[in-house]
């Protein structure tokens, strides 16, 4: 029987797992340990529900409800001096929780602090755009949509950004294979030559490490050489290995120990 592979996460798995391995944790510190962050958190807590908040590797992480995302970021920008949205994207937790986690990485230049706002949404749920607050979210949200399929409301131009417009599937989801899916394999063939050329051209090889043992055009077969292009799908001809023609090659003489000179002094 073929081994079961989970379909909800097709990412590469380590070949060795230790079932007794307990992974250590990166320390989470209480927000009260940092005065600046504590004030910021109090300001958020006064108006919004905070699900969790901690400091990890010198940056505060605040987990909020997805519905509050615009209001919280607006408040942080206008009242708490977080003047740049340096990054935002999503994390795919569909396999375990059926949710996406969206994070907003913010920077306050006056306070020299960085914090991360996080919220979780369901697969089909959409999110409010923060493009009105930070123009940088324009492209980030498009990238997030492109890679995960997280739709953002009130975005001026919700279109794919890195992948072609007519692409199917969302490449950074855990269900999307690294080498691309069926659609990816036929995409360029269909686009350039048309569907009717599928049989002639065949699917695109998207695995750069693929080896075809029957391909005698592109693969050398050390020790089992056959003439280039031989069809060996039904067994291969027995080709004896001959490294030099029996009658010798023009200008090249076979080695003869009797006639050769041994040089003892290499600086001669």
């Amino acid at each position: 029987m073929r081994a079961y592979t989970p379909k909800d996460n097709v990412q590469k798995k380590p070949y060795y797992t230790d079932r007794y391995w307990v992974a250590p944790q990166v320390a989470k510190h209480d927000v009260s340990s940092d005065e600046v962050f504590a004030h910021d958190l109090d300001a958020i807590k006064a108006k919004f529900e905070v699900l969790d908040a901690y400091i990890q590797v010198d940056q505060m992480v605040v987990i909020i409800n997805a519905a509050d995302n615009f209001a919280v970021i607006e408040m942080l920008k206008n009242e708490r001096e977080y003047n740049q949205l340096s990054e935002m994207s999503a994390i795919d937790w569909l396999a375990t929780e059926g949710k996406f986690e969206v994070f907003y990485q913010m920077l306050s230049m006056s306070k020299r602090k960085r914090l991360r706002i996080k919220c979780k949404i369901d697969e089909k749920e959409s999110l409010q755009s923060v493009e009105k607050l930070f123009r940088s979210a324009d492209w980030s949200e498009r990238e997030m949509y492109d890679m995960f399929g997280v739709v953002v409301n009130n975005h001026p131009f919700m279109k794919r950004i890195l992948m072609p417009d007519d692409w199917e599937g969302f490449p950074l989801r855990k269900t999307y294979p690294l080498q691309g899916d069926e659609f990816a394999a036929w995409y360029e063939v269909d686009k350039i030559f048309g569907k009717e050329a599928r049989e002639i051209i065949g699917p695109e090889n998207r695995d750069p490490a693929r080896i075809d043992r029957y391909d005698t055009e592109r693969f050398s077969r050390l020790g089992h050489e056959v003439p280039r292009g031989t069809d060996i799908t039904n067994g291969e001809p027995d080709t004896p290995l001959v490294y030099q023609e029996p009658e010798g090659v023009f200008l090249i003489e076979k080695f003869d120990a009797e006639q050769s000179v041994v040089i003892s002094d290499r600086h001669r």
Binding site: P14, A23, Q25, V26, Q56, V57, E87, R114, R116
Partner: peptide
Amino acid sequence: QGMRPPVGEVY
């Protein structure tokens, strides 16, 4: 097998 950093996130 590769190193296994602790559970957590960092920017």
